[in-house]
Simulated assay, not measured.
Amino acid sequence: MKRPLSALLAMLIPVCAAAKEAPSTVHPWTPAGVSSDLFESHPAFDPRTGDLYFVRSSKEFKGWRILTSHCDGRQWSTPVDAPFAAPGAEADPWFTPDGRSIYFISTRATGRQNSKDLDIWRADRNADGSWQKPVRLPEPVNSGEAEWFPRMAPDGWLYFGSNRAGGLGKNDIWRAKETSPGQWTVENAGPAINTAGDEYEPLPSPDGKRLIVMADGGLYQSHWDGHRWTKKEKLGPEVNVNGSEIGAAFSPSGKSLLFARDTGEPESGEFFVWQPQGAEAWPPMCGQAKTSGAARRK
Rank of each mutant, 00 (worst) to 15 (best):
K133M: 13
K133F: 08
P134A: 13
P134R: 14
V135S: 11
V135Y: 09
L137K: 08
L137N: 09
L137P: 12
P138I: 00
P138L: 00
P138Q: 00
P138R: 00
P140K: 05
V141I: 07
V141S: 03
N142F: 08
N142K: 07
S143V: 11
S143E: 11
G144A: 05
E145D: 14
E145G: 04
A146G: 06
E147P: 00
W148A: 14
W148Q: 10
W148V: 11
P150S: 05
R151D: 05
R151H: 14
R151A: 11
R151E: 09
M152N: 08
M152W: 15
M152G: 08
G156L: 06
G156F: 05
W157R: 12
W157V: 07
L158E: 13
Y159A: 06
F160H: 06
F160I: 03
N163E: 15
R164Y: 03
R164S: 03
R164H: 03
G167N: 07
G167P: 07
L168D: 12
L168V: 09
L168S: 12
G169S: 11
G169L: 11
K170R: 12
K170M: 12
D172N: 01
D172P: 01
I173N: 02
W174T: 11
W174Q: 09
A176W: 04
A176Q: 04
K177M: 13
T179Y: 07
T179D: 13
P181T: 02
W184G: 00
W184S: 00
V186Y: 00
V186R: 01
V186N: 02
E187A: 09
E187C: 05
G190Y: 08
P191D: 10
P191G: 06
P191L: 07
P191S: 10
A192Q: 14
I193V: 15
D198W: 15
D198N: 15
E199R: 07
E201F: 06
P202G: 06
P202T: 07
L203V: 05
P204E: 08
P204F: 08
S205E: 07
P206I: 06
P206W: 03
D207I: 04
G208A: 04
G208L: 04
K209P: 09
K209I: 12
L211Q: 04
L211D: 04
L211W: 06
L211K: 03
I212K: 01
V213N: 03
V213R: 06
M214W: 10
A215I: 04
A215N: 04
A215H: 05
D216G: 13
G217S: 09
G218M: 08
S222N: 04
